[in-house]
Computed example of a mutant assay.
Amino acid sequence: MNITILTVGKIKERYLRDAIDEYAKRMSRFCKLQIMQVNDEKTPEHASAAEELQIKQREGERLMAHIKPQSTVIALAIEGRMLTSEQLAHEIEEFGLRGHSNLVFVIGGSLGLDPRILKRADMLLSFSRMTFPHQLMRVILLEQLYRAYKINAGEPYHK
């Protein structure tokens, strides 16, 4: 299976880059992983709702340019479905069984995702009703994907 993590913005903190690299290395035995990032937009301190929507639209255009029509898109969104680790493992396995071999997980910028990305998504996934920094979300997502593959392989990591 091909997994792409498509994100907005760069990772500046070394400890987060190290964690991302570690999980990417671990996942290499289970899938082909690609991490792609697009530039984020600077948000003015007191941006209006219209300005925030324009920022999300510009970031959304950049993200959409990397989503192929045949890809299965899973957008991380606070309003999405919350799953247990076992349920996520099952969903990933089911996608594979249904012939969906290109999964694209999309993480938005600090303002969230453009509504067009949410509409294009085949699934909205939420890790919590809380807000997490989008840079940290990459690590959390990678850890959960690794955990899902370990669960599906019948290996004990998830205990």
Rank of each mutant, 00 (worst) to 15 (best):
I55V: 13
E51P: 09
D21V: 10
P133A: 10
I55R: 01
E41N: 03
T4A: 05
Q54S: 07
V8A: 04
Y149D: 05
H100F: 06
I151S: 10
K25V: 07
E59N: 04
R116K: 14
M36V: 08
D122P: 03
T131G: 10
I151Y: 04
F105N: 02
E41V: 09
M137Y: 08
L103D: 04
A89S: 15
E79F: 05
K25Y: 07
A75V: 14
M130K: 04
R120W: 06
E93T: 11
M137V: 15
D40T: 14
I5Q: 00
L124C: 03
N2H: 13
T84W: 08
I140E: 10
L145Q: 03
M130V: 00
L53S: 12
K150T: 15
D40I: 09
L88C: 12
K32F: 10
Q135V: 09
M27P: 03
T7W: 02
E45C: 06
M130T: 00
I140V: 15
A19W: 04
R129E: 10
Q37H: 07
Q37F: 00
K159D: 02
G112P: 08
I35F: 03
G96F: 04
A121V: 10
L53W: 11
H100L: 06
K56G: 02
S126W: 05
G99I: 10
S85V: 05
T72E: 03
R62L: 04
E86F: 08
L16D: 08
I5H: 02
I74S: 01
M1K: 03
I117R: 00
G96V: 05
H158D: 06
V106Q: 00
R98Y: 10
L145H: 02
G80R: 06
L136I: 15
R58L: 05
S48C: 06
H158Y: 11
E91N: 14
R147A: 12
M123Y: 10
L111I: 15
G80K: 08
L113D: 01
E41F: 01
L76A: 04
K56S: 02
H158I: 09
V139I: 15
E51F: 06
E22Q: 14
Y146M: 03
Q87C: 07
S128P: 15
E52T: 15
G80S: 09
M82L: 07
L125T: 13
E13N: 13
R26F: 02
V8Q: 03
Q57W: 08
P156Q: 09
T4E: 07
M137I: 13
S71H: 14
E13I: 05
T43K: 05
P44E: 09
T72G: 02
G112V: 11
L125M: 12
A121Q: 07
R14Q: 13
K68Q: 14
H100G: 00
E59A: 03
R26T: 07
H46N: 13
S28F: 01
R17S: 14
N39C: 05
F105G: 03
E79P: 15
L118A: 01
K42E: 14
M1I: 11
V73Y: 06
K42W: 11
D122V: 04
K32I: 13
